[in-house]
Amino acid sequence: MEGNLIKLSEEFLQELWEEIEEMGMSVKDLRRCIQCGRCAATCPMALAGLDYFIKKIVHASILGLKEIFLEDSSIWGCQSCNRCVEICPMDIKPYELILALRRMCMRNYAMPSSTIDSLRNYYEKGHSVITAGYEERRRKLGLPEVPPTVLSNEEMRKKFQEVIKQTALAEVAPFPLD
């Protein structure tokens, strides 16, 4: 991308389509989109002013502009609110495209560091988000310092990791699963 000009090219079109198909989004369904704009009217990404939001993302996917998604991080700002899915008149399930694109990007190692952190936390501790100082907060309320989740149960944590190792996370995680 240079300045404000996007070059249309079919160079990565087949590649992108195959990848998003593999990641669970039907390109044929996607191409039903008539760009009516309904999703964009209430999309949090659009309202926040991200460069790419759902309507543009659908269009860019149909045009096969793979590089946009590898270079621009907008897709990682999707709130998963599913309002687009609820109101899309063509029922293309726009949110499923976001997930497919993220999955594609992960396989190209194009993801924000926060995503890597949360995946690492998830695998190592069973929780994507762990905010420091929780022990103190919990104690204050008379709750056990460590919640009764996988975090406090070593046997379950081992089993959990055994299970997660068998998923695609093992292939895409930019850190070792051990």
């Binding site: 669970g24 999955r103 998830y122």
Partner: peptide, 8 residues
């Protein structure tokens, strides 16, 4: 943002 973004 974690596993759903890895695959279904």
């Amino acid at each position: 943002g974690s596993m759903p973004s890895v695959d279904l």
